[in-house]
Amino acid sequence: MAKITTLGFDADDTLWHNERVFRLTEERFASLLGDYTDKDHLAERLLAAEKRNVLHYGYGVKGFTLSMIETAIEVTDRQVPADVIAEILEAGREMMSHPVEPLPYVEETLKKVKASFKLVLITKGDLFDQERKVTASGLDVYFDAIEIVSEKTDETYRSLFSRHGSGPGEALMIGNSLKSDILPALDAGAYGAHVPYDLTWALEEADEPRGHDRFYRLDHIGKVPQLLARLS
């Protein structure tokens, strides 16, 4: 039997849609550069730029927008028209104001668990944009703490679950990303509930841990209360 006192929730693609906004923008980007290169090659170059730039710009829309501009310069041999750069910048601004749509079962699940557990929202990315999405979602009222971090590591979870709860040993982290939400939380000593989203950014892909007694996979976030009942 597990003693769980604290629940950590990822935000993007766990509580609300996010990756599909990036995919739609990438489609728009491909149409802008269609005269210079094919879609698949452009996607490879963009992903390479994102991988390089995440260390400098962090995660989120701003870094993605800068990576698109860099890629446009590269694939056009520095001949990219100014109006294409303007379109890319406009696409980035539109992403920063895109409506926030909570995923199914999210709000009812938060309502069910709030009375019995301490809830901590743990998300990474651009501070301004993440704060905007948290507020726009209307879900902030369910959380006892909201933490926006630059990276999710085992030390991140160890520190946050100790600060906002009774330590990682009595915490369950819930999220869609194995790489960022689940594996480092398990390494910190927490429980992990993987709730897959139908789209995954290539830099967030990872394999499920095998034989880990604190790892669980759920069909959707609405199964969280059932998991907690089983564990207790």
Rank of each mutant, 00 (worst) to 15 (best):
G169P: 10
I146C: 05
K179E: 10
L186H: 04
T156W: 05
D187M: 13
L160H: 01
H164K: 12
Y191N: 05
R163I: 10
L172E: 08
Y191C: 03
A145W: 02
M173H: 09
L186F: 12
A188D: 03
G165C: 08
I148V: 15
K179G: 04
N176T: 03
A188Q: 03
S166M: 01
I182C: 00
A185N: 00
D181Y: 14
D187F: 02
L172D: 05
G175P: 09
I146G: 04
F161W: 01
K179Q: 12
N176W: 07
F161H: 03
D181P: 05
T156V: 03
A145C: 10
E147T: 09
K152F: 02
Y157N: 07
M173K: 11
D181W: 10
L186Y: 07
Y191A: 06
D187A: 15
S150G: 03
S159K: 15
D154C: 05
K152E: 04
N176V: 03
S166T: 14
A171C: 05
L172H: 04
P184W: 06
R158V: 09
E151G: 01
G189Q: 12
I146H: 00
T156H: 02
N176C: 05
S180T: 11
G175I: 12
E151K: 01
K152Q: 00
S166A: 13
S150K: 15
A188P: 11
S162D: 14
T153C: 02
D187K: 15
F161N: 07
S180H: 14
D187H: 12
L178G: 03
S159D: 15
A145M: 05
L186T: 05
Y191P: 00
S166L: 15
G169V: 09
S159V: 14
E147R: 05
S180Y: 04
T156D: 01
I146N: 06
Y191K: 06
G175M: 13
E151T: 00
N176E: 07
A185R: 01
E155F: 08
F161I: 13
S166F: 14
I148Q: 13
P168T: 12
K179F: 12
L160Y: 05
A190M: 08
T153R: 02
L186W: 07
S159N: 15
P168R: 10
A188F: 04
L160V: 06
R158L: 13
H164N: 07
S177K: 10
